[in-house]
């Protein structure tokens, strides 16, 4: 092949700007000096430009609707709520837990774990009995929790300490135990739901946080949703002890979770009424910086503000100043 032939074969690459700089330079030099290739080049360029006149067509909205409607609904199971006084029960009736055979949808339809739907009339709901007990693998449970199911008697357990599986049990209409790896999405979502929806008055939330810390502070199990849920506890829990625990646990989360945890920590440092919580927030931000995460300007600003704020607790001011010197040695 002559040099000109080679040149022409790479003209499309030159047009799509995918030649390396050296070859691009060589090509342009040749085109400038060779009249025949110059003509070709102009024709190529014009063709390429004209092709750009072909418009992008908008995808009809019905395509989206059709696709979203086709997302598996096959193994959906509606679990009605436990019988309760009629008015409350009716209010809850719209909320359902959908246990979807998510991963089973693909090629395992027959193997999906199913709960039999119960007709949604009050009389038809069988009286709640603890004797009805079911174990569901997390991978057969949809991670999407629909509505706000009133789950009760939540407990965590470790059926077999020698494997990496954990269990989370609760009552809906029957006693359900979901087992799986801490990283299974359904397990994460259930854990998040429990963390965020647990009764504020219950002293047990702090025990849930302990459990989360033991399980999810290991890098292999770390999950952004858990980090976010802890952030929400830190923001919203009315008990300072629980908020302190949440901040401590955030401090133990791997640096990779910084994106989810940073905002809650800055917020706590800024406006948590309890100085101990503010201190824990400083410690957690310092750990983030130490773990190699670049703290965003908002975090640094907040530490500066706290270090210099006259009416701030003296200990908090000192800690903030220390943290700054750690971040910028």
């Amino acid at each position: 092949m002559s040099e000109c032939d080679l040149m022409r074969e790479s003209m499309p690459l030159l047009l799509s700007e995918s030649l390396d700089p050296a070859r691009r330079e060589l090509s342009h030099q040749h085109i400038e000096q060779c009249a025949a290739c110059n003509r070709e080049w102009l024709a190529y360029r014009e063709t390429w430009r004209m092709m750009g006149d072909l418009p992008e067509v908008e995808v009809p909205a019905r395509v989206r609707e059709r696709f979203l409607a086709s997302i598996p609904t096959v193994d959906e199971v509606v679990v009605p709520f436990r019988k309760r006084p009629a008015a409350r029960w009716l209010a809850q009736a719209a909320a359902v837990v959908l246990l979807v055979g998510g991963s089973y949808w693909i090629g395992h339809r027959g193997a999906a774990v199913r709960l039999q739907p119960t007709p949604a009339t009050i009389n038809a709901v069988a009286p709640y009995s603890i004797a009805e007990s079911r174990v569901l693998p997390a991978r057969s449970v949809s991670p999407n929790i629909e509505g706000r199911p009133d789950i009760q008697n939540v407990s965590f357990n470790d059926p077999n300490p020698n494997d990496s599986e954990i269990g989370l049990s609760f009552d809906i209409t029957s006693h359900v135990t979901v087992t799986g790896k801490p990283t299974d999405k359904s397990m994460v979502r259930l854990m998040r739901y429990v963390l965020e929806n647990e009764d504020r008055m219950s002293p047990n939330r702090s025990r849930a946080i302990d459990w989360v810390r033991a399980t999810y502070s290991q890098p292999g199990n770390a999950d952004p949703e858990i980090a976010e849920a802890l952030g929400n506890v830190l923001r919203n829990d009315e008990h300072q002890g629980v908020r302190i625990k949440a901040a401590e646990t955030l401090n133990r989360m791997p640096g990779a979770m910084a994106f989810e945890t940073r905002a809650a920590l800055i917020q706590a440092l800024k406006s948590d009424p309890n100085p101990s919580v503010r201190l824990k927030a400083i410690e957690a931000l310092t750990s983030l910086a130490r773990s190699g995460v670049t703290l965003d300007p908002a975090a640094v600003d907040m530490l500066r503000q706290k270090a210099s704020q006259d009416d701030e607790n003296l200990y908090v001011r000192v800690k903030a100043a220390e943290a700054l010197s750690n971040i910028h040695p």
Partner: peptide, 12 residues
Amino acid sequence: MKPPRRLLAWAV
């Protein structure tokens, strides 16, 4: 991982 061995029961 080492999850706590005992059962933590609490109500929601």
